[in-house]
């Protein structure tokens, strides 16, 4: 197991380098001149433009630019944005917000999603099952910004239960945006749980357990649910990875200064080092949480062995 984890972690190094190269190339290939865009409709002296280009290596060819970026990385320098702020500072200011939002969202999607899925599978075709079916269809089909503004207006403004925007109320600020962000995944988890449970119910070992006289509760939790967990864990693992990449829409609606907005602004203003720094980190999270999911398989299902 340890060897498996180490091998997988070592494998992330080439993946990260490849990802950073690709992302840097994509930012480089964006049309338009980032220095000109800095000034917008205003003039900017030619000499000042030249200076900014020199400061950010913008006159170099792509391989040279990327090489200088990698060289900086080796020295612990992640680069800086156009206002001179180090990329690491941006990440350290914004990552905690995104992490908190992700935690709240994952807690919601896991709890509500799995609970609803189990209950729906236990009472197949019942009122509750249909309710889950209809409500998840709705959640999947409503765009998140509609849901966000709606939740903000109803629960934040009209009812006043939650803060409308910002992060000044600590964890409490994250409840409503977390719920909105989780809604889509919650629906998926519920459906995934339901169908996996139903599959397992008809498995041979469940029949055997029943024949042995094992109690219903024990069958549901130990045999059916546990065997249904693999697809759910896979989904949630991947979901954590992508949620940590920041949620542009939810962050904007609830005015949370997380990574999503930072990456959006950086792409728009074509700030290579900022985009690469943040996206490479996202790629790492994604790989890492998928690895965690893989390790959990072995915990959930003893038949799975790594080595």
């Amino acid at each position: 197991m340890t060897r498996f984890i180490i091998r997988r972690l070592l494998l992330t190094i080439p993946v990260l380098i490849g990802a950073s190269l690709l992302i840097y190339a994509m930012v480089y290939a964006l049309p338009g001149d980032p220095v000109r865009a800095l000034a917008g409709d205003r003039p900017l002296s030619a000499s000042v433009q030249a200076q900014i280009r020199a400061d950010y290596n913008l006159d170099d060819s792509f391989p040279v630019q990327y090489g200088k970026y990698l060289w900086g990385l080796l020295h612990g320098d992640f680069g800086k944005d156009f206002s001179g702020r180090p990329v690491l500072e941006t990440i350290s200011q914004r990552l905690p917000v995104t992490v908190k939002l992700t935690i709240v969202a994952v807690v919601f999607e896991t709890l509500f999603g799995i609970t609803a899925g189990i209950l729906a599978s236990l009472r197949r075709n019942s009122f509750f099952d249909n309710l889950v079916l209809i409500s998840t269809t709705m959640l999947v089909s409503i765009p998140v910004f509609v849901l966000g503004f709606l939740a903000q207006f109803v629960f934040g403004f009209k009812l006043g239960w939650f803060p409308i925007a910002g992060i000044t109320d600590g964890w409490f600020s994250y409840l409503l945006p977390g719920l909105v962000l989780a809604s889509l995944s919650m629906a998926y988890v519920a459906r995934l749980t339901r169908s996996a449970m139903l599959d397992s119910f008809s498995a041979d070992y469940v029949r055997t357990a029943r024949a042995k006289g094992v109690g219903r509760t024990r069958i549901v939790l130990r045999h059916v649910f546990r065997n249904s967990l693999i697809p759910i864990v896979t989904f949630i693992g991947a979901d954590i990875g992508s949620l940590l990449g920041g949620a542009i829409v939810t962050e904007s609606v609830f005015n949370l200064p997380g990574l999503g907005r930072a990456i959006f602004d950086a792409v728009r203003s074509q700030q290579g080092p900022v985009v690469v720094g943040i996206v490479t980190m996202m790629v790492f999270f994604y790989i890492f949480f998928n690895l965690v999911a893989d390790v959990l398989y072995a915990v959930i299902d003893p038949r799975i062995r790594y080595g």
Partner: peptide, 18 residues
């Protein structure tokens, strides 16, 4: 001076007195 990314969110906040 509070930074907002969505003008609509800021507007809701003024309506609510925040």
């Amino acid at each position: 001076m509070r930074v907002y990314t969505e003008l609509s969110t800021a507007y809701t906040d003024v309506l609510a007195g925040n």
